[in-house]
Design a protein around this nucleic acid. Sequence first.
RNA 1: GGGCGGGUAGCUCAGGUGGCUAGAGCGACAGCUUUACACGCUGUAGGUCACAGGUUCAAGUCCUGUCCCGCCUACCA
Length: 885
Amino acid sequence: MTNLPKIYDPQEIEGKWYKFWEEKRYFHAEVISDKPSYTIVIPPPNITGILHIGHALDNTLQDCLIRWHRMNGFNVLWIPGTDHAGIVTELIMERKLAEEGTSRKEIGREEFIKRMWLWKSESAGNIVSQLQQLGCSCDWERERFTMDDGLSKAVRTAFVKLYEQDLIYQDTYMVNWCPQCDTAVSNLEVEPIEIDGNFYHIRYPVVDSDIVLEIATTRPETMLGDTAVAVHPEDERYQRLIGKTVCLPLSNREVPIISDSFVDMEFGTGALKVTPAHDVNDYEIGLRHDLEQCVVFTSDGHMNENAGQEYSGLSRLKCREKVVEDLQKLDYLVKIVPHPHAVGHHDRCGAIVEPTISPQWFMNVKPLAQRAIEATKNGDVKFIPERETTRFLHWMENIEPWPISRQRWWGHRLPIWVCEVCQKSTAAMDTPVKCECGGTNLLQEEDVLDTWFSSGLWPFSTMGWPQKTDELQTFYPTSVLVTGWDILFFWVARMIMFGLACTDEVPFNTVYLHGLVADDKGQKMSKSKGNAIDPLETIQKYGTDAFRFALVNASTPIPYVPLPEAQIESGRRFTNKIWNAARFILMNLDKYPIRRENLDSMHENILEVNWIKSRLAQTINSATDALDNFRFHELAQTLYAFLWHEFCDWYLEFVKQRIANNQPYALWIAADVLEQTMRLLHPIMPFLTEEIWQQLPKDYDVIGTNIEPSVTVAEWPQSDVEDTIAEKTMSTLMNVIENIRSIRGELNVPNGATIDIHIQSPDPMVRNHLDSYLEQYLPAFTRVNDVVISESLPKPKASAEAVIGNLVIYIPLEGVIDLDEEKTRLSKRYQQIVKDIKAAQKTLENPQFVERAPEIVVQQKKDLLDRLSIEHDKLERSLAMLDNS
RNA sequence: GGGCGGGUAGCUCAGGUGGCUAGAGCGACAGCUUUACACGCUGUAGGUCACAGGUUCAAGUCCUGUCCCGCCUACCA
């Protein structure tokens, strides 16, 4: 006997089914298969991280695609894994060390790395089990980590390969330096943040002259490192000063006045202090004029001895204060003007980035970008939404060398060895025995590679590259990459470039970039803002399937997708609705078990059965179409509307009546429709659908087949043909019912009161259908007592009425009806119709419309006008009668 | 400075290639303990689709301009 709880309890079933799937190895992909491959590599989350809302969305969408393709008969592989996340992870470890009263430098590289691995092994399981809680059907037997041996070998191979092509080189150049993390970072990791800064106007006295040059700067402390002042060559104000020198206040050094067309005459005072060691533009100017590079900062953001005794040892900020103070004291400061401007901050630690000259390893990505551009333009890789293509191409076309070395420890150490004798660098897979010069003492480069270097190889390093593995053969290039648009440049761009460089192929054919989850104010959810939903708490509270449904439903093509709590609640209500629909069907199946022999002899032509089959067919089509085009919101909407508002609101209500009349056929169809709907919903709601699917009887075959051991590997439903006649008839029937309900409601007919209705329709087919259905159903649907249907009937006295095309419903309500209220009700409808008629007439009276619009559109308009006109006339007559009574 | 996205019901959003009387969820209001579900059922109200032009037989949808909001990008010190 089926005895299900009234309220769906997700806790009860989720763990059970995940275990079942794993035991059956449904998520495992075989290398040898005659099915076509469908592959996704997970954008690897941080190894020590925990699941946040962004992961939840990203992986839910991937799981939808994966599960859908699995049901569609593909050989599906979803490779999971994690990323070592160099800088962030080190930062957290350093915080831990600080709590213990020690530091990275104090314990040394070896010990530090040891601690990192230890921590890794402790926390590695977190994110994995969280992804499992989310229901992700990854092939866990193929889980990877960026610092695994195989993947590390891929890193070295790629490095050596690119080094040998001169695409990786060492150079001393100006890079973004994070004084807090003590490492170089790339442009992408620098976040410009608008701050309320100032413009400091400072006097620079010209030597051997009483002229004083006024310069304006936002960073007065850098003047300690000035080695020139630049003006525009055509600036008449300053032309005669070019070639002279100024005396640098505070440091009292003499520096030249040079001319360079970089200087903007309109901006500031038109005179620019030049600090080649601490500003990118100044650096370039310095190179052009062969200026000295005077370094005044230490790598941890303090002033060094070049800044002068007064300032040496001060922090950047303290130094600025003191410089301004001293300038004021010595009367060099003209004024301070508020000047808001953007300052680069390190996106990982938030420290202000310092442009610094330092020897770093770079990757010349320009030639690789060129290939990526070509691959994009010829369609080898496609971006969804399409607008992302423009963004991608723009970035690729303006790409700059990528600094890949980081002065950190946790990551892949550069496979570069430097000879102690000749100082020459050698790139190699393993420590070389000796150098070209014969030297045998070679030391490996201390730096590690940017984490994105190894992540960029992820689509193929996870499959065993550089070896020619069967995995690569079968699953590469992968099918699609799914991630948020915010990491298009970080990951996707690098994956494409590396893919082309290393494998000569784009690593995926499609890139789907989804939005970022935002709070109700449209702000991106993030931990630091404190506005984030915790996925694990949410799952706890609402259940995984409800959460997943909310995420999929929120996935419209906009850049920031809002996910208010109400939407998750709505998801939970939906799971409960599904649960109860299943409960209703299962409980009744106990009383009316399905019998194949009965089924065969009962293929009756039942209106509601034909209707729901037709609706299901359309639902299958639009769900498939939505998935085909990554329209996740539409997928969720379609299934929600079908299941709730057609299957539950209408079909199951019919089933109740059938059961009451001892006719279980419609119930059995309900079971079958539910079974197929569970398959349609499975990619979104894996747990609930499996639970219900397993409980449904499997020894029958009504519409589809149901013989697989799990919905996970059941076939995606095939759509039947639509039945337009059943849909049309049903729509009339539903209309009649809705109108009666509406009248009851609006005219305040007491709830318990039964009513009679008279229906007149000139259409014999309609009359026939209504005759056979209404009598049976109306009592239950609208508490109707007696139904009279005819071609023409006089309007009963004191009756309310509704007009549906050429069909009229009268409800005699003598003694109940308030004529004024009825008049108001009808006039409202009447006025609306008049308006609609006018609009339709206007269109049809336009000869050009009739001439140029497609025939079907014209016909539709005509039909509409006909329908409206009939209603109009009938209403007009009724209103006149009401006036006379 | 360049580029992109958005402005549709009280709120959050749907409305692929222009063509049904502009939709949903949530909220509001009214009424229902109808034996699957009160995480429910039934009904009602609520929109000059930011503004101004234009293209078209036809514009929420395409074009131009304007005004807001958000984001990305850029070396203006």
